[in-house]
């Protein structure tokens, strides 16, 4: 008899926990991942691919605050290369290395110089290229003050395309059409 009671109470408890979890989930769903940053931590918006490769979506991540804008930009690119932690998909081949990154404030432009693997290991395709390019472009422009354009280089040189499609000879401005909030 006493056992039965305990089971009923346990059952009610589990039910309650499930309800609370569902409630929390809904709240998480409506969350924009913006939080007030702590002292040495900066919350950044990283753009990764949606699972169907249709759009870029934001994954919020805490990174250690860097001294200058160039170092901060480098960390952002490294985080993109490291790939998403949530349920989004990567946009940059994991073998990619950032050789150099420099910012020309007068041009409001960040120049990203990657190694050969960035191209050699790229999956190709127009969708793949667009996701790669704009995950870099939108991430840098959204998280750094004073950057409006991003130029991609490979082995120190301007390249025509990543894998035969999108024109990479000029700096890219931000693209909001490819983003789904």
């Amino acid at each position: 008899m006493k056992r039965k009671k305990i089971f009923i109470i346990l059952g009610v408890l589990i039910l309650l926990i499930i309800i609370i979890l569902i409630f929390q989930r809904e709240r998480v769903f409506y969350r924009i991942p913006f939080l007030a940053p702590e002292e040495n931590v900066k919350l950044v918006r990283l753009y990764f691919a949606s699972p169907d490769a249709d759009y870029l979506k934001v994954e919020a991540r805490r990174i250690l605050r860097e001294e200058g804008i160039t170092d901060e930009a480098k960390v952002l690119v490294e985080e993109l290369i490291n790939g998403p932690r949530g349920n989004l998909d990567p946009t940059i081949p994991p073998e990619t290395q950032l050789r150099e990154l420099y910012i020309v404030p007068e041009e409001k432009c960040a120049y990203l110089d990657f190694n050969k693997a960035f191209r050699a290991n790229h999956p190709g395709g127009s969708a793949g290229e667009l996701l790669t390019i704009y995950s870099l472009v939108n991430t840098l422009i959204d998280n750094l003050e004073g950057i409006e354009r991003v130029q991609i280089l490979v082995e120190g040189k301007i390249i025509e395309t990543l894998a035969g499609h999108i024109d990479t000879t000029k700096p890219f401005p931000r693209n909001s059409a490819i983003v789904e909030y």
């Binding site: 691919a49 699972p51 169907d52 490769a53 998909d89 990567p90 946009t91 940059i92 081949p93 999956p123 190709g124 395709g125 127009s126 969708a127 793949g128 996701l131 790669t132 035969g164 499609h165």
Partner: peptide
């Protein structure tokens, strides 16, 4: 062309630009 992407499902479908 034929399309490509990174990720688990690696995209799907046809599109025209």
């Amino acid at each position: 062309h034929t399309n490509a992407a990174l990720g688990r499902a690696r995209g799907g479908g046809f599109e025209t630009y």
